[in-house]
């Protein structure tokens, strides 16, 4: 996937958020660099939810944080409502940031264990002294009520008294109470079990409708992402592979990596034996020295010399469906035998 290009971007004026040529690198001992995000282009329209999927370590969180300027990216532009956030510094950035909020994966780490729930939720309002004290308290109560917590009981408690799902509700309340325009949700349901996951996904959809939110929703579960997103971007080792409308993208995955991700989803049906499906073998390579050309080539059954030498460029497959691959899977083409761990591992073990 490891692709470049911006064929998938819409007209610049249309989008609330437009990320251009985003690069994030972290220094790592001995003069090496972690290439966490390399040349990523993304855009999100007002009111849209963009799903960002990929394996752990592929740079999803880093992209989300770079959008928030926490920290600012190494290079590239992050246009929010037409303004380049990477140019904004100090106080101005502090003010602008309130329009972007974030919800995190780990419900434990995202709430300060020493503070009461009312203080946690009110923090954004208190920093900016929005309204009077009692107006703020009212707002916090209303928000707790909206996310399904009883403010009278919950207000004075501390985070350790809540379950993971309840902590995520509090995080959502905290993010929405300052009325942001964009929320970056970094795997908000990955730490929750299925029944709570459904509650939180429904809540996010409701909050989005009620507060006209635009969302970037990061996850590694394609079914979850499909449920909540208007558009999906698949990421691998710091680059985008495939972008499009989930209905099109899931029906005809054009990128071998997307196809592999789809087949890895556990299916609640005992007649489908998992090992009759294809699973992706091997591990994601180190971002310290990513493979040349297409970054997926070390695990891709279709890889050839072109993949080794040329970085694939994003190109349209159909309507709102774009792929960055030299040998995309044609619609209707069987991917059988393409990514088959079963065979590979059996061979390795034999």
């Amino acid at each position: 996937m490891a692709g470049i290009g911006d064929a998938h971007l819409r007209a610049p004026g249309e989008s609330l958020l437009r990320v251009e040529n985003l690069v994030v690198e972290f220094p790592s001992g001995r003069g090496q660099k972690v290439h966490a995000v390399t040349d990523v282009n993304l855009d999100v329209l007002e009111g849209e939810t963009l799903g960002l999927v990929g394996e752990s370590g592929c740079g999803k969180s880093t992209t989300g944080k770079a959008i928030m300027q926490l920290p600012s990216p190494t290079s590239g532009r992050v246009l929010f409502g037409g303004q380049d956030l990477t140019d904004v510094k100090g106080e101005d950035l502090r003010t602008l940031r309130t329009q972007l909020q974030m919800i995190f994966q780990d419900p434990i780490s995202s709430l300060n264990p020493r503070r009461r729930i009312e203080d946690i939720v009110a923090e954004g309002l208190n920093i900016w002294k929005t309204g009077t004290k009692s107006e703020r308290a009212d707002k916090v109560d209303k928000m707790l009520l909206t996310v399904g917590l009883d403010p009278k009981v919950v207000r004075g408690r501390r985070p350790h008294q809540f379950s993971g799902g309840q902590c995520q509700r509090i995080s959502i309340a905290r993010a929405v109470v300052t009325e942001p325009r964009l929320i970056v949700c970094d795997e908000p349901v990955s730490a929750l079990d299925v029944s709570v996951q459904a509650q939180i996904l429904n809540l996010l959809e409701d909050m989005k409708a009620r507060y006209q939110l635009t969302m970037v929703f990061i996850a590694h579960d394609l079914a979850v992402v499909k449920n909540i997103s208007d558009r999906v971007a698949v990421m691998y080792l710091g680059r985008l592979c495939e972008v499009g409308d989930p209905d099109l993208l899931y029906a005809n995955p054009a990128h071998p990596y997307t196809a592999a991700l789809l087949s890895a989803i556990p299916v609640a049906d005992p007649t489908v034996k998992p090992d009759q499906r294809e699973t992706l073998g091997g591990e994601i390579p180190s971002p310290l020295s990513p493979p040349s050309g297409c970054r997926f080539r070390t695990r891709c059954p279709r890889a050839d010399d072109q993949c080794r030498n040329e970085v694939p460029v994003m190109a349209q497959v159909e309507g709102d469906h774009f792929v960055a691959c030299h040998h995309p899977i044609a619609p209707g083409e069987s991917i059988e035998g393409t990514v088959n761990l079963a065979g590979a591992l059996a061979k390795a073990l034999a």
């Binding site: 009520l145 996310v147 379950s163 509700r169």
Partner: peptide, 18 residues
């Protein structure tokens, strides 16, 4: 009070929590 989203309110801490 009722949640504007019609959710059942959760008040008591999680059973496991305590």
């Amino acid at each position: 009070e009722v949640s504007p989203l019609g959710l059942t309110l959760e008040a008591a801490p999680h059973a496991a929590a305590e």
